[in-house]
Design a protein around this nucleic acid. Structure first.
Lengths: 111, 111
DNA sequence: CTTAGATACATTGTTATACTATGTATTTTG
DNA sequence: CAAAATACATAGTATAACAATGTATCTAAG
């Protein structure tokens, strides 16, 4: 069948939802990049490529929605921890409203 | 605040969801392009630009997910009606599975 | 009766973003 | 000791929404 179409579609759905998911995950806790990928992989079946995450986090920093800090480890590579800024929290709440609306709309259409 | 960021994000969320919405709407009925835009605007608060819809419908035709037929009107401009092909129906059901999963995952993360 | 707005199709160019591929460096495990 | 996992990062490509623009018909307001 049209395998590529569905694969491609999934990738397109991620555009936008990823940002939303990341911000929501950071709402409750600080995480470092690699950990975010793992968290989301384990909790949601969504696989994020590293080449997707790091540029995304940099965009969010440029937009002042998140800040990052380096944390040295006793052993291993230092980790860059991300957390939401007040602007990030405000933006997220706007996104939540839109998402809830969208989700309801789609639910209506699907049945 | 960061007005553009949220606006931009909404546009990105549409990538993928739009295709999904259109196919779902066509599941039950035939519609012509302009009518699709109206239907979705009225039922969902999602605004689709014409410059978005017509190329999208052509993509779906190229992928053999929908077919179209011209219908002459007694008065006014002829309308191009779209309907799902068997491949379209099959693809849609795959998409529905993914969406349900995604929606559940996001719901889990949001709370 | 003329003009603005709605209806109905379509294309071109721009922009944003996920992904592949690739690279560096460290630590753990078989 | 080598391979896999951990942890960061960037360059280039492909895709799709949108703005702008264009054509043509019909309706309603002034």
């Amino acid at each position: 069948m049209n395998e590529t179409f569905v694969t491609n579609w999934k990738s397109q759905v991620k555009k936008g939802t990823l940002t939303f998911i990341i911000l929501n995950v950071l709402k409750n806790n600080e995480y470092y990049g690699y950990e975010l990928i793992e968290q989301i992989r384990n909790h949601t079946e969504i696989e994020i490529a590293e080449g997707t995450l790091y540029p995304l986090m940099n965009r969010l920093k440029t937009e002042d929605l998140v800040i990052s800090k380096w944390v040295e480890q006793e052993t291993g590579i230092p980790r860059k921890y991300y957390s939401l800024t007040p602007a990030g929290i405000a933006t997220l709440s706007q996104m939540n409203v839109y998402w809830e609306n969208l989700e309801k709309s789609i639910k209506k259409i699907i049945k």
